[in-house]
Design a protein around this nucleic acid. Sequence first.
DNA 1: TATATGATCCCCT
DNA 2: GGGGATCATATAA
Length: 213
Amino acid sequence: MTEPNLLFPAAFYDRPTLQVARDLLGHTLVRVLPDGTRLSGRILETEAYTPDDPACHAHRGPSERARSMFGPPGHTYVYLIYGIYHCLNVVTQPVGEGAAVLIRAVEPLEGLAAMAEGRNIAPTAVRDLARGPGRLCQAFQLDRRFDGLPVTTTRSPIWIEHGTPVADAEVLTTPRIGITVTPEAIAAPWRLIVRDHPLVSGTRRQNCGQPYV
DNA sequence: TATATGATCCCCT
DNA sequence: GGGGATCATATAA
């Protein structure tokens, strides 16, 4: 079975992390459940984490939790946060460097009923399905078992395929959400969002930013 | 072994 | 806009 031409090759992820974070905007996160149900959403919000950054889980070298970040680009890094929620990342840059893009929000496209089920909310509450990294993982039914899987093949239960790219004029950079480590890390404009999109996480204030270019 | 701390969300005011 | 939930992980002892 040949791969359809709608997937990004591993080389797409083997690039500087901020670039990958920007280029993923507008494209489609796909998840196929065990029963065959297809879930998908348009990526609206990402954050870049590189090993030189103290907020990055790979900053202090390889650890059990962040092992996947040091693995091949184009694979997932899924971790548990606050003992309750999971966050989905895609590994970037060459093997051994320890970098990734956090996927923070998508616009639900397919499988909304199943997403609502995973979130345990009413199917009508589209706005709350996948706005924020914890909600996104609930909607897409992702946990640590999905750590280290490739997103570059449809043989995986999760992958990213071509959607509708976002023009530079529609991309805004802001500081990342929830960072507290150092003033530099707090201020770094490494969160990328689709401008004025209602399904991006964060407050009005947090979503004011600078043009990407 | 022991303690502090989150790349969050939800509910309350 | 403020606090609690809840636990794996990191770091200290």
